[in-house]
C-alpha cells in the first residue's frame, strides 16, 4: 500500500497546499479588492500579470525561479544571507513557487466576487459613518463569501496538482520537497504501478471532493438568491 515515503509525500502536499492557500488569501484579498475597485487606466497590465501562470508552461516558471533562487543572483543571495540556506531544494522555495503558480486561481474568484458588490451598499454604510476598513470587513467580506470559498478551494486544489514547478526547483528530497505528484511520477517511471495507483487514486479522490464542494456551494447560493 503506502510506503513511509508515500505517506510523508501526501502530508507534505497537504501542508504545502494549506500554507500556500493561507498566504494567497492574505496577499490576494487586498490585491483582488484593488483590482475590483480601482479606476486606474493601466489596471489591465496588472490583471494580465496575475493571469500569466494560467498560460505559462510550469517549466518556464520553474526555470526562472531556479535562476532567481541561485545564491549568485541578488534575490537568492539575499535569502541566503537571511536564512542561511538556498531557497531551491527547500520547503520554503516550494511555498514561493506555489504562491506564484496558484495566484490567478485565488485572485480571479475574489475579484469577481468583489466586483459584484454594489457601490450603493458601500455608500449606504458610508453615510452611516462606517470607516472604509469597517465597510470592508462588515460588508464586502460577508457578501463575497462564495468568492472566498471558491478561491480557497481552487487555490488548494491547484497546489495539490502542482508538478512541473516542483520538479524544476525541488530536488526530490523525501520529507522536504518530494510532494505526492513527484512521488507518483517516480513510481510510474520506475514501473512501480501499484504504488503509483494508490497515490494517484488518493489525489484523484481528494481533488474530486474539493471540486464537488465548490460546485455544490455555488449551486446552493443560486438557489438562495432566486
Amino acid at each position: 500500500m503506502f510506503s513511509p515515503d508515500d505517506i510523508s509525500a501526501l502530508q507534505l502536499t497537504l501542508k504545502l497546499a494549506a500554507i500556500s492557500t493561507g498566504l494567497l488569501l492574505l496577499l490576494g484579498t487586498p490585491l483582488a479588492w484593488w483590482l475590483a475597485r480601482s479606476q486606474w487606466r493601466f489596471k489591465f497590465l496588472i490583471e494580465a500579470l496575475v493571469a500569466l501562470p494560467l498560460v505559462l508552461p510550469p517549466t518556464v516558471l520553474g526555470f526562472y525561479l531556479l535562476i532567481a533562487f541561485s545564491p549568485n543572483n541578488w534575490f537568492g543571495g539575499l535569502m541566503m544571507s537571511v536564512t542561511g540556506e538556498t531557497l531551491a531544494f527547500s520547503f520554503m522555495g516550494l511555498v514561493i513557487g506555489s504562491v506564484i503558480y496558484s495566484l490567478p486561481f485565488v485572485i480571479q474568484p475574489l475579484q469577481n466576487a468583489f466586483t459584484m458588490i454594489s457601490s450603493q451598499s458601500l455608500e449606504a454604510a458610508a453615510t452611516l459613518r462606517a470607516s472604509p476598513l469597517d465597510r470592508f470587513f462588515s460588508i464586502a467580506i460577508p457578501l463575497a463569501r462564495p468568492g472566498f470559498i471558491s478561491a480557497a478551494v481552487l487555490g488548494f486544489a491547484h497546489t495539490l496538482g502542482e508538478f512541473g514547478v516542483v520538479l524544476m526547483i525541488g530536488g526530490n528530497i523525501p520529507g522536504e520537497t518530494q510532494v505526492a505528484s513527484i512521488a507518483i511520477y517516480e513510481h510510474v517511471e520506475s514501473l512501480e504501478y501499484t504504488q503509483a495507483h494508490w497515490l494517484a487514486g488518493c489525489l484523484l479522490l481528494l481533488s474530486f471532493v474539493l471540486l464537488i464542494l465548490v460546485y455544490a456551494s455555488n449551486r446552493q447560493l443560486r438557489i438562495m438568491r432566486t
Binding site: 535562476i67 533562487f69 545564491p71 549568485n72 531551491a88 531544494f89 530536488g171
Partner: peptide, 16 residues
C-alpha cells in the same frame, strides 16, 4: 536529485 542528468547539471550550473 535531478530527474535526469541534464537537470542535475542545471542544479550546479545555476549555482543552486
Amino acid at each position: 536529485r535531478g530527474e535526469n542528468i541534464a537537470q542535475t547539471y542545471q542544479f550546479v550550473h545555476t549555482g543552486n
